[in-house]
C-alpha cells in the first residue's frame, strides 16, 4: 500500500511511498504551496501532517485563469 495522490490539470493519479509530510510531498512534486491545497475526504490537510500508506489525498490547484 502506498499514499494515493490525485492531481489536476491534467487529471492523473500517483502513488507515493509513505510516511511523508504534506510539505515534503509538495516539495517532491515540485509544487508551490501557495498554488495548491491538499484535501482528504473533503477536508483540508495541514502542511505538517504526515501521510501514511493508507491515505488517499487530492492536491487541488487554486490558481484560476482568465485575466478579467
Amino acid at each position: 500500500m502506498q499514499v494515493k495522490v490525485r492531481l489536476h490539470n491534467p487529471r492523473r493519479d500517483l502513488e507515493i511511498e509513505g510516511p511523508i509530510t504534506i510539505i515534503n510531498l509538495l516539495a517532491r512534486l515540485d509544487l508551490n504551496r501557495e498554488a495548491v491545497l491538499v484535501v482528504r475526504d473533503g477536508e483540508l490537510v495541514p502542511g505538517d501532517e504526515s501521510l501514511s500508506d493508507a491515505d488517499s489525498i487530492e492536491i487541488r490547484p487554486v490558481i484560476s485563469g482568465g485575466a478579467s
Partner: peptide, 12 residues
C-alpha cells in the same frame, strides 16, 4: 475546480 479550457498558457 477544473479550469476553463481557454485559459491554458495565458499570460495572466
Amino acid at each position: 475546480v477544473d479550469e476553463c479550457p481557454m485559459a491554458a498558457g495565458n499570460k495572466h
